[in-house]
Design a binder for these strands. Structure first.
Length: 188
DNA sequence: TATGAGATCAACT
DNA sequence: GTTGATCTCATAC
């Protein structure tokens, strides 16, 4: 049986937490699936929201680890992050894609697409599929409505450069399940 | 298959 | 006024 991730899990470097999240199960109100793609962001990283210091939007990133940081992207989409390390270090892991496993009907209804592959393959898509919005910014990840289950098997984690950013594009801080059909983009 | 516009909000110049 | 941790739809190849 899979066990819940302890909140301690997040109290480490984002570069340790991010690859360890691949294969874990993320549920929100019982709906979700297996995490297959994430990206790491750190306050010393020019591409991170926290790079230029604390603002009203990114305040949760500067708080304690084990919380959800949800922000609006391009004015339309919501994106989900897990805050890591320790209070004040302002680092987080962006959840980019899931392999759908639970609550497929609810996800399809919210997304308005039939293709299972398009349900959660992208940060904006997975928030829409799970019903996550700015109202959930700052919630603890080890309590309802979130549920996180540790992976049960060893697996190979692919590494690559991050997507959709224009600064610090060289850092190999994108992690994913190699060969998964549910990635927002394949690794090469 | 590939490229481009539009949606629409917060932070920054 | 511009840009961005995005996605969808339309149009072109």
């Amino acid at each position: 049986m899979p066990r819940p991730l302890p909140s301690k899990f997040f109290a480490r470097s984002v570069h340790e937490v991010a690859p360890d999240l691949i294969g874990a199960t993320l549920l929100f109100k019982g709906v979700g699936g297996v995490i297959v793609e994430v990206e790491a962001y750190h306050h010393t990283d020019q591409a991170a929201h926290s790079y230029r210091g604390r603002t009203e939007r990114n305040a949760v990133m500067f708080g304690p680890p084990g919380k959800a940081y949800v922000y609006r992207s391009y004015g339309v989409h919501w994106c989900l992050n897990f805050v890591c390390e320790r209070e004040g270090s302002a680092s987080a892991v962006l959840i980019r894609a899931l392999e759908p496993a639970r609550g497929l009907a609810a996800m399809r209804r919210r997304r308005g697409v039939k293709n299972e592959r398009l349900l959660c393959s992208g940060p904006g898509r997975l928030c829409q599929a799970l019903g996550i919005s700015g109202a959930h910014n700052g919630l603890a990840l080890d309590r309802s409505p979130f549920k996180l289950l540790a992976r049960t098997t060893k697996l190979k984690v692919a590494v690559g450069s991050r997507i959709g950013i224009s600064k610090a594009t060289k850092h190999p801080w994108r992690y994913g399940l190699a060969g998964s059909r549910y990635l927002s983009k394949p690794f090469r």
